[in-house]
Structures are given as C-alpha cells and as structure tokens.
C-alpha cells in the first residue's frame, strides 16, 4: 500500500498526490483520486465502475448502499472531511457537544478538548471547478436534540464526548478533535456541560492521523455563552479541508439572529 504524500492544499491546489494506477486502498485518506481507485476500509466499500461508458459509483456501509451514475470528463473524485450536518438529511446546521460538567471560576481562561462526529463527503469536480457533492457517509451514529424550548429553541445535532485538558485520542474518520478555548468573562462560577457550534462556520483541518477544528467559547453569564468557530489548524502541518455544504430543509431557526456573524452561535438558553 502506498501512503499518500501530503502537500499543502493552499499552495498546490490539491491535498494529496496519488498513484495513477488502479488500486484498492484499505484506508480512506482525504484528497483527490482517480475513479480507478477503490476504497475498502473496515465496513466501507467504495468503487467506480465503467458500465457502457457511464461511470457507476457504488458505496456500501453497514449493509446500506448508495449508487449513482456519472458522466464526467474529469475522471477524479475527492474525499473530504465534512461537518456533521448532512446525515441522514440536512436537518440542522448546529452541533451540540455535551460533556461532563466543568465548574469554571470567574475570569477563567482555559483550553479543553472534546470530540465530535465526522462525516465524509465524496465530491466530483467539473472542468469549470463546479463541485458536486456525490455522497456523504459517516461511521458515527446520528442523533438530534432540541436546545431551548420548542418555540424559541433550535434543533441541534447531538453528541456526547469525553472532555480533557490535553488532546484526546480520536477514532480516525469517525470523529474529529475540537479544541475549545474557554473564557469565563462573568463574575461568578459557571457550570459548563455543553457547547453548540454553528457548523457553517466550522473550519476542519486534517493530517494523516486526525481531523481537528478550533472554537472559542466566551461565557457572558452563567446561562449564556458565545461560541465562535476559528479558522486555525490544531497543528501547524495540518491541511485545511474544503467546506462542504448542502441546502438545509428546515429554516425556522430564530436563534441565528443572536449571532454576531455567520461563525458565531449565542447559547442563551443554558450552558449545562
């Protein structure tokens, strides 16, 4: 098996250099590959077959398959890490990460690490650089929750994580590591048991071992905090993932107006 060579996407326009030969890989490895490269990774099988001149894409995971027919001159596909807002349907753009409550003293300025579910997107690039999201899959289980009340709240993708002051080991391709820079700007002790991110502001970075992202949590009072995704790599040699979005079905999210900008979510209905 050939290990792909990492290159900086911002400099050379592609994250990986690949072998231009037919191959079946036993790892996913984010990057751009020819249709001839199949993936057979744990429960995942992914392949492109030429059927009478039409490329037939087939992906299997946990007994479920997804198929598509493609007519494209550019015989390449890309594998991207994506935020968990696509599966099983684009329900919400908010991710709630719950963890064991932490008591934060007034003026506290600390860094915590949590993990969050990861999705993997297969995209096609046209010759005019138009990107088509062909498929999105995940090894993580999807659950949703309501943050706040049914009238004022928002639907969030829900996950529970370990929490640590040092980087946690992550299950590669299943979850990503999130670095939270937390600042308690209030004058009282605060119990923090969850953070909610606006996923369209999430910047994922990856290397051969993991996918990671960073966010700032600014606690305003014991019931409110402002969570902002920051566009920074966890480690210097990490490559930035292309943002992958699809349209969302539901639109009634009143809380978005409380955000300062598109990258921010204001948790004003409790922090625990």
């Amino acid at each position: 098996m050939v290990i792909p060579t990492f290159t900086d996407r911002r400099k050379k326009g592609t994250a990986f250099q690949y072998e231009k030969t037919d191959s079946v890989w036993e790892t996913i490895a984010f990057g751009t590959y020819p249709f001839t490269r199949s993936i057979n990774h744990r429960r995942l099988t992914l392949s492109f077959e030429d059927k009478d001149g039409i490329m037939h894409y087939k992906r299997g995971l946990d007994g479920k398959t997804f198929e598509a027919n493609i007519a494209a001159s550019n015989k390449e596909y890309s594998v991207h890490p994506a935020g968990p807002n696509h599966l099983p349907a684009p329900v919400t753009d908010y991710l709630q990460i719950r963890f064991d409550e932490i008591e934060l003293e007034p003026g506290c300025n600390t860094v915590l690490f949590v993990t969050a579910p990861l999705e993997i997107a297969i995209t096609l690039n046209a010759s005019n650089n138009e990107v088509k999201i062909l498929d999105v899959f995940s090894f993580a289980r999807t659950k949703f929750a309501l943050y706040g009340t049914a009238t004022r709240g928002v639907i969030v993708r829900d996950t529970r994580s370990r929490v640590s002051a040092v980087p946690l080991p992550v299950k590669n391709y299943k979850e990503f590591l999130l670095r939270l820079h937390i600042e308690n700007k209030s004058d009282s002790w605060v119990s923090l048991g969850r953070v909610i991110l606006y996923l369209k502001g999430l910047s994922l970075y990856y290397d051969s071992t993991s996918v990671a992202a960073c966010a700032d949590v600014s606690i305003i009072n014991p019931n409110s905090a402002q969570v902002s995704c920051t566009d920074l790599p966890l480690r210097k040699d990490m490559v930035k993932a292309e943002p992958v979005f699809t349209d969302r079905k539901t639109t009634a999210f009143c809380n978005i107006k409380n955000g300062q900008n598109d990258l921010t979510f204001v948790m004003d209905m409790g922090l625990r």
């Binding site: 599966l87 099983p88 329900v91 289980r141 999807t142 659950k143 949703f144 929750a145 309501l146 943050y147 639907i155 829900d158």
Partner: peptide, 11 residues
Amino acid sequence: ISRHPYALTEP
C-alpha cells in the same frame, strides 16, 4: 428509540 436519528434525545 435511542437508535432512531429523528427521536430527539432532548426532550
């Protein structure tokens, strides 16, 4: 219920 994605965990 816990396995179904659209069954909310909260409430």
